[in-house]
Design a protein around this nucleic acid. Structure first.
Lengths: 223, 223, 223, 223
DNA sequence: CATGAATGAGCCTTCATTCAT
DNA sequence: CATGAATGAAGGCTCATTCAT
């Protein structure tokens, strides 16, 4: 039986994919630094040499995980953002999809927010740039809605997006498939809370008058 | 000059405190796994032996960081939750304070969500239990408001809390003191978005009818 | 020059063997606890990583030393015990061989009785079990002779074996190749003293009458 | 309550004695190198400073254990060797006493043969010299018997003593108070086996003729 | 006499990565 | 393409001992 095509695990995915899948799971379970290359290749049924043939370094696996996740999310966001309907309808669809995607990529998301800081500088910058583009595309949807008058304009769009994304990205820290709420329910509640909070006429309360204007978020921080 | 009271760094705090402060900063900057005990003790101006005199292991520093942060937050929450005023007023005050505290403990928070999974089992369970108690105290505030009719009852209080906490806890991934928004502004916006989303009459949209009832979240997951 | 086959020391044995030999000598000379892994690998002309490639831990070297010694002794005992001749002849041959083997494995024996207690529980139990089987095989030879009437029956066979093995195993504490007695001489004298003491008709003396009967030794203790 | 006189353990022995007793037990149980000074002082209910007040170093405890044991044994041997009766009677009495003493100082003996090599050079030489004197005194008893014609002369007295002492000193590796043989029984059997092996007329067998003469053992080895 | 904070040297072990085969 | 032996650089931790109090 040829190595790299099926292997002891019986999976038919090509070796690079299999390694990535195994690594994602192990990183999510035990942490990036607590997972040795040895464990990864053993779980994939190959040897180290095989892994280094496809990935130049351990952090290449990490980078690839991030890169793919962001590519998937960006591609889907484009589709929903560019679809038909009112800005609110499109934002809702996009927001629902963000959560859906998050639930189907929980491991990737877990690894993302736990271990991004472990990437070497170059790769970390690259990931951050991708993530910013994604953030900005989502923000532009909110801005559209604000201009159209569907959403309150007294909250910086940037901030609203960070607020929503923050809530979504932390799902990995508390949600569990055996819990009382299934993924779809969480998604609908979260989108509801977000959009209602954003709806015009909310009014943040008197003490918010004179809050800072719509200053764009220049930096997304260090991740 | 007495050892352990000031040392080369000129700080007057006792050594255990100084080590904790130094470790918190380094963990936040470079990650727990990428920070060696050697770096910590060098930054504190002592030797390894001195550190191990006070902390039995490197992860004891991590645990202490978490434990103290949670103790501070719990103590403050009790104060705000038990104060006077309507449930909404108390929830608002508590929420504002959560964000305030988060901003003054950004490093601790950063370390918390990045590295909690690196704690050994026993300590992780202990931290998780403390965190759950904190979550539940906050949730009970929301439930009070729901019973009083100020907040929508069609969203599980547990979920609303997770939503808000998620957004807040992710602040460390994007906020930067040099950015356009100062801490207070972020706090007011976030609290506004949260409370408006929670306000009665929002209506999550037609597709939410028949969503899961007000089932409490039994588990808070693995963190 | 291929790595691992000869190395700087010029020896042609494979690395695992070379490491074991070096470790045995150093453990015997300086003690297990006083010998660092660094010293072992330096003496073998490799780096630590190379050693840990073959031995999972320092105590694996210790265990392997014991295990091999016992395997050699057991195998030889089987041969002598199962040979032809009267029980006394076979016991004599076996006893002579025990001493011969001890002299050709003095370092191993030295390490054995000094450091067995440093093995982790599992490994120590395993070694002890092997040693007990060896003891019992030897004991059955003595019992054969007792039944045949060649040996006195008023001494428990177990005890006689412990007596002889004790004397032999302590050789490492006083014998030195430069001393006045060569290995063969010691062997013949020891075997003579043992067999004459065991011979029928000795009589342990009046005060031994009424001593405990032939109760077998149930346990061999902790080693 | 004054420290050092009774302490938390309630014993009335002076502190130096208590420390020695605790150390002996711990060394026998866990090994010298695996027992930390911290454990010793904790078990004795004092602090490190107190211990270093009485013992200059950890190996001073070890040395003292050996020194005392040898002093006790030497003193007793003098008494029995210098008593009345035939050489055989005196040797028997001395041999019985050696075993008695060994059984009442099992821990000391265990530590002795496991850890003597860990003493620094000077102390080790000193202990070895004491031990040699003891050996020689015992040997002279055997030689007396040989000259008197009670013991065979075809075995070097030195070797016979090493043989007997070897058997006795290994008792710690197999004897256990819960085993089927009590201490007295072991003693009588051992002395019987030894003296019968030594008795005139044994005859080591034809193959021993021409064995080495009565060359004295020059060195007692490294221990 | 006794304390206990601090030192400093060293120990065992891990692990990403390389490279001859 | 793939192997796996070997490297080399750290890393966390232990511990006997000292010394100011």
């Amino acid at each position: 039986m040829p190595r790299g095509s099926a292997g002891e695990t019986g999976q038919a995915r090509p070796l690079p994919e299999r390694l990535l899948g195994v690594a994602t799971r192990l990183f999510a379970e035990n942490g990036y630094e607590s997972t040795s290359v040895q464990e990864i290749v053993e779980a994939a049924g190959v040897t180290k040499g095989a892994m280094y043939h496809y990935y130049a370094a351990k952090d290449d696996l990490l980078y690839t995980i991030y890169h793919r996740l962001l590519a998937v999310q960006t591609e889907r966001l484009e589709r929903f953002a560019g679809g038909g309907g009112t800005p609110e309808e499109r934002l809702r669809a996009a927001a629902v999809d963000v959560i859906d995607t998050s639930f189907t990529h929980l491991d990737e998301l877990t690894v993302f927010f736990r271990s991004m800081h472990l990437l070497p500088d170059g790769k970390r910058k690259s990931v951050r740039a991708e993530r910013r583009r994604y953030h900005e595309r989502f923000r532009s949807l909110v801005e559209e809605g604000q201009r159209a008058g569907s959403f309150r304009a007294d909250v910086p769009a940037d901030l609203a997006v960070s607020f929503f994304f923050g809530a979504v990205h932390q799902i990995t820290t508390w949600w569990h498939p055996d819990g009382p709420l299934d993924a779809r329910a969480v998604g609908r509640y979260y989108v509801g809370l977000f959009l209602d909070g954003l709806r015009r006429g909310g009014g943040l309360g008197a003490d918010l008058d004179g809050g800072p204007g719509d200053g764009g978020l220049e930096t997304l921080g260090e991740c």
